[in-house]
Design a protein around this nucleic acid. Structure first.
Length: 998
RNA sequence: GCGCGAGUGGCGGAAUUGGUAUACGCGUUCGACUUAAAAUCGAAUGGGGAAACCUGUGCGGGUUCAAGUCCCGCCUCGCGCACCA
């Protein structure tokens, strides 16, 4: 035979496969079915890239492996053809998008064929085929009829470069994910899909499918579920709102002028959404988003100019600017007040751009003690901070009796040292602390304890260290559990009193003065729960710093759960429980209701472009938006002279009067067609279903075939689609399921994301960096498709982002050349009819063992999708074979080639035939291993002394544990390490290692 | 800031339940073949050391006869989200 030459054998086999249709999937086959779905390509002008190569090669490996294992495999392919890139390509090259699509899909088809993929091409289509998008439009009308497709005029994301509206998911860091241009806000009347109705289902459905955690987490995160409550705050009536005049158009609205005059107090309320109703007693102000409709109504005359200025400034800020999180908080007071429904306190209403109109109600109750943003804001504008949740330290103890007390940290400003008490044990110490007596304030208790325990009475300044804390302990004397509410104080001592006086009650205590780090460490060594002391010390450190800078001490912000304080009847309750109780309590007064919020927004479904599915709606003056009747579908794209998008928010279709003007399907009166088209994602929402019945012209697919094929068993795709296509198509499918149109609640049984192939320099491949590697030239340069397939698979685990390595393909090519040469040798010699040779430990046994080990390893690795290590195992096997090449016969070589076939199908098919097999390799099934060939006569065991490797022993496979241990100790090197010491233990791990412990 | 993941030779990466760290490939060095080069084949290859041996999986501790793997505390990088109340 000749040398290995992929250029000769690959096209030959590709032609055979196409002609024999050997990879066609069979509807209703008796075999178990397996749908291997890969994301279909967007047929851009650039052709197949490395990402495609990796994804489709992985898909093909699995498809071929499953087929060999007896599955009826559907491995389909289509084209996601509608959308901006094709339109831009067409405009640039002055051809129609249809022609551009035809040209590009032809290129893709040729390139995919070159790779030898086992695709069932009978079922292929492009989403821009009218036969296909007829059903895309039909499905849109199902949403429309159920009220899940609706029109709304809202401020949407607008890409000024692409001149189209975008969905939320298409905006990444304020930029359009496709063209990377900054996105603007624009008011447009848009078609929307009510994906928010499915928010809960989209989360719940993840429990029933096999997605990697990072994908499921990312979707859950994006949906952004928050459980909380809506609470109404009545606007205080003694501040009559000013009537805005006509010139102040920024905040004046017609509505506000109309509504002023006759309003009941109940109407004048601001509804907020909060996840922390438990903190409501600490709501010391409210904040409205600058765009909030009530801003104009409530602003007082004195504040009008300031508020208008602020609102204007907020509007002028770009989305990017408003999203910068490290920006200092800004805002302005409206002059109005609201009543906190929990405690009837009058609290000021501010506006600030850290509150977003697009989430919740666009208004918040601000609780500065327990929310970082509110805390920053309150600090800046000197708004009171009221703590209503106390930190809860240590483990909760049952049946605790509540006690109250103080902790006092003494500080000497002259020496800058902190005080601790101790007795004989100098290592540890404690802080001044004690219970509060009846009729005594906490501050009085603090002064008394400091005097009694430490003997200090002159205090320059006593500072309460923020929020009181709870801690738990067991009281030895009373033999019961205690829960202690402790107020913490920093006592800045008066420098005129340099030594302790009056130390009456506890003369056995002595005082130690420490630097902060020391006292922190020494208190820490005290037995028992001192967490709350450490917390108090940290607070004291901050307070000292403030004191030295002559600043007020601002209590810390605490956003966690804890115990209720300053909250009326709810005091002492656990905040989690109290939150629910407060909502119920307010609900009885009709001032609150439980509410779940999602970050997910409804899906902006309109695009102002030519190359997409026309939205099949007719606008009639009498009947409004009317669905195009089913028998008139598809609404085909009319030919146009200019495809360029316009700036006015309308698609080029709007310019074709003959197309736009039609009649109303309901009344026959003149009417106009909708001129917006659907987004790129519309076609990919359901394409997998079309593969099940691609030629059907009565339905998008027949119920029988939908039922037979069911869910896609494995869906391989890019991580970048997790919150785009993957989320959208799950929503779309769930809706179809609810209408009884598909038999499964989820579209994909399992999802895996392949990693990105970076350029060899470790950066992303991009035209601008000029580091793009195309797969096709690699094949054409002589390495061939098989080497390219091996190369991209061998690089790294399939789901890992990794740099491309041209040398890896060269290495794989060498490997295939060696496989080829070995097979040639086997065929040429042909002498070894030596199946019967069974000497002990013959070379033939070695070769057989290697073969069966490899069958096992490759099978296991393929099941776990460890493709790179499966290839390594094949390489190892070849290395082993090469050592005893004379022992390898045709049968063994055929099995090896079968194992190679999913990865490198062309060379495998060729060699399988050359090795004398009459049936094609596709009919050969998958090899199985026999355990009896795996058994070795001897085994090598490592010998350690105290866990360090000191030698090796080779023993018979059936040697007893005692024999092995004896042999291990006898090893000369081991012996020298043991010397005359006696081993205390000898540990034997079967088949692995002996460890001698001395 | 929040969520997820990862740190192992010169490089990509291996390592079932804790059990001989660096499989496999690339690169490098030496050798064979050759007039020569390429291709191919063979050998070596974590670091230090002549060797015995020491040392070594991001850093610091811990558990264990034994730690890349488990626990505690950090650091760095990547991805996603980000003023979401």
């Amino acid at each position: 035979m000749k040398r290995y030459s992929p250029a000769d054998i690959e096209p030959k086999w590709q032609k055979k496969w196409t002609e024999s249709r050997i990879y066609a999937a069979e509807d209703f086959s008796d075999k178990p079915k397996f749908v291997m779905l890969t994301e279909f390509p967007y047929p851009s002008g650039a052709g197949l890239h490395m990402g495609h190569l990796r994804e489709y090669t992985l898909g093909d490996i699995i498809a071929r492996y499953k087929r060999a294992n007896g599955y009826n495999v559907l491995f389909p392919m289509g084209y996601d053809a509608f959308g901006l890139p094709t339109e831009n390509y067409a405009i640039k090259n002055k051809i129609s998008p249809q022609i551009a699509t035809d040209q590009n899909t032809a290129v893709f088809r040729r390139q995919l064929d070159m790779m030898g993929y086992s695709i069932d091409w009978q079922r292929s289509f492009a989403t821009s085929d009218p036969d296909y998008y007829r059903w895309t439009q039909w499905m849109f009308l199902q949403f429309f009829e159920k009220g899940l497709a609706y029109r709304d005029e809202i401020a949407i994301n607008w890409c000024p470069f692409c001149k189209t509206g975008l969905a939320n998911e298409e905006v990444v860091n304020g930029r359009h994910e496709r063209c990377d241009n900054l996105v603007e806000k624009k008011m447009l009347k848009q078609w929307m899909l009510r994906i928010t109705d499915y928010a809960e289902r989209l989360i719940d459905g993840l429990a029933d499918v096999d997605y990697p955690p990072r994908i499921a987490d990312q979707q859950i995160n994006w949906i952004g579920k928050s459980v909380g409550a809506e609470i109404d705050f009545v606007i205080a009536s003694e501040n009559p709102p000013v009537i805005a005049n006509k010139t102040s158009s920024v905040i004046a609205s017609k509505q506000s002028m109309d509504r002023h005059g006759d309003k009941s107090p109940r109407d004048d309320k601001i509804t907020v959404f909060t996840t922390r109703p438990d903190t409501i007693f600490g709501a010391t102000f409210m904040v409205l988003a600058p765009e909030h409709p009530l801003v104009a109504e409530i602003t007082t005359a004195e504040q009008k100019v300031e508020v208008e200025t602020y609102v204007r400034a907020a509007q002028a800020k770009s989305e990017i600017e408003r999203q910068e999180t490290d920006r200092a908080k800004t805002g302005t007071f409206t002059g109005a007040y609201a009543i906190n429904p929990a405690n009837n306190e009058k609290i000021p209403i501010w506006i600030a751009d850290y509150v977003l109109m697009g989430y919740g109600t666009g208004a918040i109750m601000a609780v500065p003690a327990h929310d970082e943003r509110d805390w920053e804001f309150a600090k800046k504008y000197n708004i009171p901070i009221v703590a209503v949740i106390a930190r809860d330290f240590g483990e909760k103890l049952e049946n605790s009796k509540q006690v109250e007390g103080v902790v006092v940290i003494g500080y000497d400003p002259t020496t800058k040292k902190f005080m601790r008490l101790t007795n004989n044990n100098v290592k540890s110490g404690w802080l001044v602390s004690g219970g509060r007596d009846e009729n005594e304030t906490f501050e009085e208790a603090a002064r008394r304890e400091l005097a009694e325990e430490a003997g200090y009475v002159k205090i320059e300044k006593l500072i309460e260290l923020g929020v009181p804390v709870y801690s738990y302990y067991y009281n030895d004397n009373k033999r019961s559990n205690r829960r202690s509410l402790s107020h913490n104080f920093l006592a800045i001592l008066d420098s005129s009193q340099t030594t302790s006086q009056n130390q009456e009650t506890h003369e056995d205590f002595s005082i130690i003065w420490d630097d902060f780090d020391e006292i922190y460490k020494n208190v820490e060594t005290t037995e028992g729960g001192v967490e709350h002391w450490l917390h108090a010390l940290k607070q004291a450190k901050v307070a000292v710093k403030n004191y030295e800078k002559n600043e007020e001490f601002t209590p810390e912000m605490f956003a966690g759960e804890g115990i209720m304080i300053n909250s009326g009847e709810f005091d002492g309750q656990d905040s989690t429980e109290a939150g629910k109780a407060i909502v119920e309590w307010l609900a009885k007064k009709d001032a609150a209701r439980a509410k779940t919020q999602y970050k997910l927004r409804d899906w902006v479904y309109s695009r102002q472009h030519y190359w997409g599915e026309p939205i099949p709606i007719i606008h009639c003056e009498k009947h409004g938006a009317v669905a195009v009747p089913d028998d008139e579908l598809p609404v085909e794209l009319p030919p146009v002279d200019h495809y360029e998008p316009t700036d006015d928010g309308h698609s080029p279709l709007s310019k074709i009067d003959s197309w736009v003007n039609t009649t109303c399907p309901k009344c026959g009166e003149p009417a106009k067609r909708e001129t917006d088209t659907m987004p790129n994602w519309a076609g990919s929402n359901w394409y997998y279903l079309r593969y099940y019945d691609a030629k059907n012209d009565k339905a998008f697919a027949s119920p029988e075939k939908l039922k037979y094929w069911g869910m896609a068993d494995l869906y391989l795709g890019g991580m970048e689609h997790t919150t785009l296509h993957l989320l959208y198509s799950r929503f779309h499918h769930q809706f179809l399921y609810d209408q009884g149109l598909v038999p499964t609640p989820e579209p994909y049984a399992a999802r895996r994301g392949q990693g990105i192939v970076l350029a060899a320099d470790g950066r992303k491949m991009s035209k601008s960096l000029n580091n793009v590697v195309d797969p096709t030239p690699i094949i054409e340069s002589g390495y061939g498709a098989d080497a390219a397939r091996l190369g991209v698979t061998f690089l790294a685990p399939y789901d890992q982002t990794t740099p491309w390595s041209p040398e890896a393909v060269a290495g794989c090519y060498r490997f295939l050349g060696r496989v080829w040469n070995l097979a040639c040798d086997v065929i040429a010699s042909d002498a070894k009819q030596s199946m019967d040779r069974h000497d002990d430990k013959s070379p033939r046994d070695d070769v057989l063992r290697i073969l069966h080990q490899t069958i096992k390893k490759v099978s296991d690795d393929l099941e776990r999708m460890n493709f790179n290590t499966a290839i390594a195992a094949l390489m190892e096997a070849l290395n082993g074979f090469s050592k005893d090449a004379a022992e390898v016969d045709r049968e063994m070589m055929s099995v090896f080639v079968q194992l190679l076939a999913p990865f490198a199908p062309h060379i495998a098919a060729e060699l399988y035939e050359e090795l004398g097999n009459t049936e094609p390799i596709e009919k050969a099934g998958w090899p199985t291993w026999d355990e009896k060939y795996l058994i070795e006569e001897t085994m090598t065991i490592a010998v350690q002394v105290n866990g360090k490797l000191r030698g090796e022993i080779t023993v018979a496979a059936d040697a007893s544990e005692d024999e092995i241990k004896t042999a291990a100790v006898a090893v000369e090197n081991v012996h020298s390490f043991i010397g005359n010491k006696k081993p205390t233990r000898v540990i034997y791990v079967p088949g692995r290692v002996v460890n001698v412990v001395i």
